[in-house]
């Protein structure tokens, strides 16, 4: 009985601070911004391949349980321009989730590694205006997260709590809109999105609303020469994320969800065929519900190419 009660408490605690992980890893960028999408075009018949390495760490535990969370995510993103306006993307993340927690029986570690849930996105450029060396575009998008990740992993403690599983088991649609203004010197992207979470395995993540803004400023070369030189951009992004409470067995988990505002400084090197990027997401505001564990930081490294 005591063990069962402990397992329930543990599951609730884990739920509380795992809940924001999918938010971070299922909304990768496809072009110039690092943590959000862009409305820039993918040419008809052009393909994109992007690989990111995302490390998220959370250790600031207000309780005596000394909780520690580390998540590695390697999302592989494939994009294809069906037409000059319609682009399709598939995101296939490899995940490594690990949580350490102090219990009366000692320090325990739980987690799993493998393919997570995949996301498919359709983006359509609904409006554009081009000028000389300047463009402005607006593109709505719809997404569907499909349960390709394993969601029934068990260890010595029993079945892993749902948020520790690689997959949620649920089919989650999302929609949003992104606007981009780009010149040779700078670029601004702004995106609003909403993800509807559905129930699976008696668990339901809270819906997620996001407001993302990215500013990129060309640092090098200062003067443009002939041809297509590589650009070095300084990047500053803002991610405002609001997540509803999760539901366990239909009951709201008061230690889940909340609002987080990240500021994300970064740098990008952009050539004709390749983009290399690095950024750190720093949580500036974390208004999380209950005893949820706060994020320390998220490190993002990425490389993308076109073919």
């Amino acid at each position: 009985m005591r063990n069962r009660l402990f397992a329930t408490q543990l599951a609730v605690i884990i739920n509380a601070f795992i809940a924001l992980i999918p938010v971070t890893i299922t909304v990768p960028a496809f072009a110039a911004p690092i943590t959000l999408d862009t409305a820039l075009p993918v040419a008809r018949g052009e393909g994109l391949l992007k690989i990111q390495s995302i490390y998220m760490r959370s250790t600031r535990d207000p309780t005596s349980m000394d909780r520690s969370l580390a998540v590695w995510a390697f999302p592989f993103v494939i994009g294809y321009g069906v037409t000059e306006k319609l682009a399709l993307f598939g995101i296939f993340p490899i995940l490594d989730k690990k949580i350490d927690i102090s219990t009366p029986a000692g320090r325990i570690s739980r987690g799993d590694t493998g393919l997570g849930d995949s996301t498919f996105i359709t983006r359509y450029t609904a409006w554009k205006r081009d000028w000389s060396a300047e463009t402005m575009r607006i593109a709505p998008f719809v997404a569907l997260k499909v349960p390709t990740g394993k969601d029934d992993k068990t260890d010595g403690q029993g079945p892993l709590p749902q948020p520790i599983q690689l997959g949620s088991g649920s089919w989650d649609p999302a929609l949003g809109i992104v606007a981009t203004w780009q010149t040779l010197n700078r670029q601004i992207d702004a995106s609003v999105s909403y993800a509807f979470k559905t129930e699976a395995n008696d668990f339901q993540f809270g819906d997620v609303a996001r407001l993302d803004v990215s500013y990129q400023h060309r640092l090098l070369p200062r003067e443009l020469g002939e041809g297509v030189p590589g650009f070095v951009y300084g990047v500053l992004e803002s991610n405002l994320i609001r997540e509803d409470k999760s539901r366990v067995g239909g009951v709201k988990d008061n230690d889940s969800g909340g609002t987080t505002w990240y500021l994300t400084p970064g740098v990008e090197y952009v050539t004709k065929r390749l983009v290399v990027e690095a950024a750190v997401q720093v949580p500036v505001v974390q208004e999380l519900n209950g005893n949820a564990l706060e994020n320390d930081y998220v490190v993002i490294l990425g490389i993308r190419g076109n073919f």
């Binding site: 040779l184 443009l224 020469g225 297509v228 004709k272 983009v275 076109n306």
Partner: peptide
């Protein structure tokens, strides 16, 4: 509208399919 190096690739790729085109030089400036 062409204002970043990554975008120039798509332009080059499509222009290479035009009949008779040999070499292409894109100028961002």
């Amino acid at each position: 509208g062409m204002s970043c190096p990554f975008c120039a690739f798509g332009v080059e790729k499509r222009l290479k399919k035009v009949e008779g085109v040999g070499s292409i030089t894109v100028s961002m400036k």
